[in-house]
């Protein structure tokens, strides 16, 4: 699904509110101890201040760079089955399995 603008207008970095920190933590599926939130607020705000320096750079017309090596393109793999059933080995690291399935608390749809 394609929805929602992700490229909305930038906002000036400011001190993050408690609520913002809680929202980020939720998106990242982290549970912050309530007592630790002010420290995260402070840490993240100073990090954002610090990276806010980037605003000074003149980047009009400069395309973003996502790979360090210029000009490389994706190599393609031949469509061949090269893997076999290794479920038993791979599930040795799994915290909870039954009948070959990975188990999680009930998912409500």
């Amino acid at each position: 699904m394609i929805s929602g603008p992700i490229h909305a207008a930038p906002e000036a970095p400011m001190a993050l509110t408690r609520e913002q920190v809680e929202n980020i933590a939720h998106l990242a599926r982290l549970e912050l101890e309530p007592a630790a939130i002010p420290r995260f607020q402070q840490n993240l705000s100073s990090i954002l201040d610090f990276i806010g320096e980037l605003e000074r750079a003149e980047t009009a017309g400069v395309p973003p760079m996502s790979h360090p090596l210029p000009g490389l393109t994706q190599r393609l793999r031949a469509d061949a089955v090269t893997e076999s059933d290794e479920r038993e080995l791979y599930q040795r690291n799994a915290p909870q399995v039954a009948a070959g399935l990975y188990l999680v608390p009930k998912v409500i749809e």
């Binding site: 603008p5 992700i6 909305a8 207008a9 970095p13 400069v62 760079m65």
Partner: peptide, 18 residues
């Protein structure tokens, strides 16, 4: 995240090219 991608991520990748 929504609203910050341009200002931070894309901007950083542009400066990276510089």
């Amino acid at each position: 995240s929504a609203g910050y991608y341009d200002a931070y991520y894309l901007k950083a990748q542009r400066v990276r090219r510089l």
